[in-house]
């Protein structure tokens, strides 16, 4: 679906934003693109969505070189959710969606009511101007705008930002459903939970380079200490012990009365990010 080879981009003579990225995104895959601010992830997304031109290297989407793909046909196949919910504040959700959907062929459009219902949009607000909505409501309308054209390739930038926990769960479920339909998702996020739960593969980008690219699980396993921390009760007192996983093959070998909990000492995705990039996600 997406093929990127030696992608470079500069905003000026001395402002090299991308220094030769290489990655591919397969059909129906959720690909996470993680990086701190200024790492080059927005620039990459803008190149992939055809907003920025003048890059070096080779970028192809849908099997076609991006520089030749800036046609109505290309934009009909992609859906982009921006980090902020960009909508006409003086228009209602319904009018916004009617307006944005009118640029696509009617045959590929989804039903506005159905999609808003799926996103648990409050029907009372349907005809009220967007200016009166909360951030979560705006994000729902923005997501509806992205999905209304039934895109084959979705670019999602911080999709769960501004949502409460139940809203975030809902969005993750919807993204999963899209993937099940065969939609490819390019996810740019700071949210490690989103990346961990949703992505088939993630790329860590820092200073215009990809520092690591793999499945989240594999990244964590590769860097795991292969230890578990066991909390237990013995002779009336609470104790903790860290043991290697190989030591547990024959069961818990040390004296104990009751096991309280067993925690894997596997690193989190955030730990991995910091390890590979040397920077936090801020």
């Amino acid at each position: 679906m997406i093929e990127v080879r030696n992608l470079t981009f500069s905003y000026g003579k001395d402002k090299e934003a991308l220094k030769g990225l290489d990655f591919t995104v397969e059909d129906g895959e959720i690909f996470g693109f993680l990086g701190p601010n200024g790492s080059g992830k927005s620039t990459t997304q803008k190149i992939l969505t055809g907003i920025l031109r003048g890059h070096g290297g080779h970028v192809s989407l849908f099997g076609q070189e991006i520089s030749k793909a800036h046609t109505a046909d290309f934009f009909e196949k992609i859906g982009v959710l921006f980090e902020y919910p960009y909508l006409y504040a003086n228009l209602s959700a319904l009018d916004n969606l009617r307006y944005f959907s009118s640029f696509y062929p009617s045959g590929q459009l989804r039903d506005i009511g159905e999609i808003l219902e799926k996103l648990e949009f409050k029907p009372d607000f349907l005809k009220k101007p967007v200016a009166s909505y909360s951030k979560g409501m705006r994000q729902r309308v923005s997501m509806a705008r992205t999905l209304i054209s039934n895109p084959r390739l979705l670019f999602l930038d911080e999709p769960t930002s501004g949502l409460d926990p139940s809203g975030a769960v809902l969005f993750r479920r919807i993204i999963e459903e899209e993937r099940k339909k065969g939609t490819t998702v390019f996810l740019t996020t700071h949210n490690m939970l989103d990346a961990d739960l949703l992505c088939d593969r993630v790329a860590f980008i820092t200073n215009g380079n990809i520092a690591a690219l793999d499945m989240p699980k594999r990244l964590k396993e590769k860097n795991s200490s292969r230890c578990v921390r066991i909390a237990y009760l013995y002779q009336g007192s609470r104790r903790e012990k860290t043991v290697e996983t190989t030591e547990l093959e024959r069961g818990i070998f040390f004296p104990h009365d009751e096991v309280i909990s067993i925690h894997s000492e596997e690193p989190t995705l955030e730990d991995m990010f910091i390890q590979y990039t040397g920077r936090g996600l801020s």
């Binding site: 969505t49 055809g50 907003i51 109505a72 046909d73 290309f74 934009f75 009909e76 992609i78 982009v80 921006f82 902020y84 960009y86 909508l87 006409y88 504040a89 944005f100 640029f103 696509y104 705008r145």
Partner: peptide, 13 residues
């Protein structure tokens, strides 16, 4: 409102 940026990814000249 940021909507100008949305027009960049619409099938529109």
């Amino acid at each position: 409102m940021g909507v100008i940026r949305v027009h960049a990814i619409l099938p529109l000249k």
